[in-house]
Design a protein around this nucleic acid. Structure first.
Lengths: 241, 241
DNA sequence: TTATGATCTTTACATCGTAAAGATATCAGT
DNA sequence: ACTGATATCTTTACGATGTAAAGATCATAA
């Protein structure tokens, strides 16, 4: 496993010494694409970088998600992302927005299953954890990273949508309409209770902090059973209890 | 705010050009300390580095906690910590162990207050969050960092002690003795429920994910009230409910 | 056709973690 | 008390990273 300099030595398309040779050869291209060659300004690097970033994140985890690694993955120079995202925080925040949108999709799908609000809630909780387990890097990006600029419009909106989904789902369980702009203490508590429970469980699970507990449970008992048992005692209590 | 090279230009004690001048001057020291001068091999750098690391963590946060910054803070060369902790993971893990011990102390103190198990539980939950708010960097080190080697004996033991305290406190609430080596599903669920709730709440709070909810609560309602309301509905339910 | 601006590359620099070699002090064995 | 072995600390070196700035290249509007 050679530790030699990876910088631009890897799978760069090589793009033929882009000096004046290429300038003569490629001058005045007929269309937006040079015949069977790499595109000039890449077409849509913004999207390409985000897709590359997602691949890097899934492959190498949060620690591997660097500006330069993303640039390598996309086959551009290491400074190219700067122009599109400003800095690492920018790229990471845009990617987190994508993560929130994926997550919201999954939540909507999960909310469609289940008859009673109770079942819907459980289905959503399971889907929540399933998403985090399927995309641990992305979940870490959304909730563990410190380099996240929540003021970025796309991220702000995606995260808000996510919260609104949660609030709506809680309102559904309580058979009441929730005005997000003004919450009663009880409503806020119900929302935060559900969120803290599932988010905390997810974090501890992904961090491996629950392995001991899981190993010490009766044989055959799964994570899912633990989750269900945990939720059973915490939410959806009969009123007046 | 000069961005000039901070490397060793800062508050290094200068220790007089430690070449052969110092060797002649300090040859054959009378005691373990040269008269009113810096110690030779520093005495106990291991502890000094950990204390320096804690200062750096509290001052500059998780992102500022680097091997070189710690070495600077302790007034030694940037490579000195390597010999004591192997690498950054080592230092960070030892520091996290200290954090867990501080945290355990706080939990024990909190558990002493309160009459009923119910009150004790609430006191512990409040102390949990209070610790995290008072030492956000340390809490992040203990629960957010990926560079943590849980197999290190000191960290493993401190974290286990912490878990044992939680388990014991849950057993207290349920009026039963908990055998950590073999948990029923209900017991595991109770433990994980409490942990997930408080840990999740803490994480969301520290990350600023709850500011919107807090702002939308009735005026005058505090974080503490939200926490209490959240816990009221989740734990310590009357049996058979 | 050409000039302007957007996009991408090169180059440069401070910082970081880590390895390796050199310097210095402690300590055991004689 | 001397000396060699060992532990501790410093210097030096290298690859990697984020970011800034300047140069090159291309699209597009005038």
């Amino acid at each position: 496993m050679a530790r030699l300099s990876k910088e631009n030595k890897a799978t760069r398309p090589v793009r033929a010494p882009t000096r004046r040779v290429a300038r003569v050869a490629a001058d005045r291209p007929a269309s937006r694409r040079r015949a069977n060659d790499t595109p000039y300004h890449h077409g849509d690097l913004h999207e390409a970088l985000l897709r590359a970033a997602e691949r890097v994140l899934e492959r190498d985890g949060l620690a591997g998600l660097t500006l330069r690694a993303v640039a390598r993955e996309a086959g551009v120079s290491h400074a190219a992302p700067t122009h599109h995202f400003g800095d690492l925080t920018g790229l990471v925040s845009e990617l987190a927005a994508i993560g929130f949108r994926q997550f919201n999709e999954a939540m909507i799908v999960a909310g469609a299953s289940g008859a009673t609000p109770n079942e819907k809630g459980l289905a959503r909780a399971k889907a929540y954890i399933a998403y985090a387990q399927a995309h641990p890097g992305m979940y870490g990006l959304m909730f563990r990273t410190e380099r996240l600029d929540m003021k970025r419009p796309s991220l702000h909106e995606a995260a808000n949508t996510s919260f609104a989904g949660l609030a709506g789902s809680i309102g559904e369980s309580r058979h009441e309409q929730i005005q997000e702009r003004a919450l009663s203490l009880d409503q806020a508590a119900a929302i935060v209770r559900a969120w803290s429970l599932v988010h905390g469980f997810t974090m501890l699970l992904l961090d491996g902090r629950l392995t001991d507990v899981l190993n010490r449970m009766p044989p055959g008992n799964t994570v899912e059973m633990l989750l269900e048992a945990m939720l059973r005692g915490a939410v959806n209590k009969p009123p007046g209890c």
